[in-house]
Simulated scan of single mutants.
Amino acid sequence: MNTSVLAEPEWQAREQAHAQRMREWTVPHQERRARGEKHPVLDFLFTYYSYRPAHLERWQPGPGVTLAGPAARRFLERPGFAETAEGVTLDPSACTGRRARTAEFVLRLLSATATRAPRLSCFGLHEWAMVYREPAASVRHAQVPLRLGSAGTDAVVEAMDIRCGHFDAFRFFTDPARPRNTLAPTRENQADLEQPGCLHANMDLFKWAYKLDPFVPAELVGDCFALAADIRELDMRASPYDLAAYGYSPVRVETAEGRAAYARAQAAFARRAEPLRARLIGICRILLGDRVAALE
């Protein structure tokens, strides 16, 4: 693996730029949490995804980069870093045990996903299926009203085909909604069903990036997080919730115009996710080294 050496001022500038970029999201989240204020769109990025705000702001160079200068020695306090004659660098051979198993799973999943064409016909109905025939007090965001009310929401679910292939969305469907799904996603068949048009599959690039910490460059983690944040906005704008009080206009997927708008945005996100997925695949290959051949 080729390596590059970053002088101390260079890597410190990247470190500061990354932290500043991530504070666009972490600081407002921490301020809301201090006030005890919930946000039905943005909290998901820090609750469903388990990466702490402080870790999101934290910088690491990724494999193949050596950090020069005395300040780099503080990275030796973190797992995976080693000292060389030129400075401090990540050691891919330190990716063992649980992290190696994670890298194997991520490589299989993302490689399989990358081989498929985006499917753009789900129209975000997973969020509708999560509240189908659910008492109003029991829905996931009970503090937010449903745009069409409970009966109107149920009618949309009953009138449309639901084609959710993402297990981590499907597992939140209400019991009456599950039989309405045309697919049967499970954890075991995840790699068989995941496809690059799926909003949640593309949001999850952030999860796979931080699950491989510290071996993914912080800027790539940040790119995956920024993508997840933008997708989350579409995900909830297309949901049955009325989010006008939070400044979000609806994407009315119950109409033909809304479905067309959703599919266009979905396709744009798929294009944006493609190079990020490819970079994560490449990092998994570096981490696994000779073990890659056994997985293919």
Rank of each mutant, 00 (worst) to 15 (best):
M203Q: 14
G149P: 07
L146T: 04
K211H: 13
T174V: 05
V216L: 10
L212M: 12
P145E: 08
R163M: 04
P176S: 01
E158C: 03
G197Q: 10
F173Q: 05
P217C: 13
P196A: 08
E158D: 13
A129T: 12
S150R: 15
F173S: 05
A226S: 14
C198P: 14
T182W: 09
L146Y: 05
A142F: 11
F206D: 06
C198I: 04
C198F: 03
Q190N: 11
Q195I: 05
S150L: 15
H200D: 08
R178L: 01
E219P: 04
A136L: 15
W208S: 06
R180H: 07
N202Q: 10
A226I: 04
L227V: 00
C198E: 00
P185Y: 13
P176V: 11
E158T: 00
F172K: 12
V157S: 03
A201Y: 07
T186K: 02
N181F: 11
V144E: 08
E194H: 12
C164L: 01
M160L: 15
K207F: 10
V221L: 13
I162N: 03
L212K: 05
D161P: 03
A169P: 04
D223S: 15
R147M: 05
R187N: 01
A136Y: 10
Y132G: 04
G197K: 06
G197E: 08
R178H: 00
T182E: 15
L193Q: 06
P135Q: 07
K207G: 09
F167H: 15
C224V: 02
Y210V: 11
G222V: 06
D168G: 09
D175Y: 01
A137W: 09
I162A: 04
A142G: 11
L148Y: 02
G149R: 06
G222A: 12
F206L: 14
A136W: 06
L220N: 14
E158L: 14
T186M: 05
V157C: 05
Q143C: 06
R178M: 01
V221M: 13
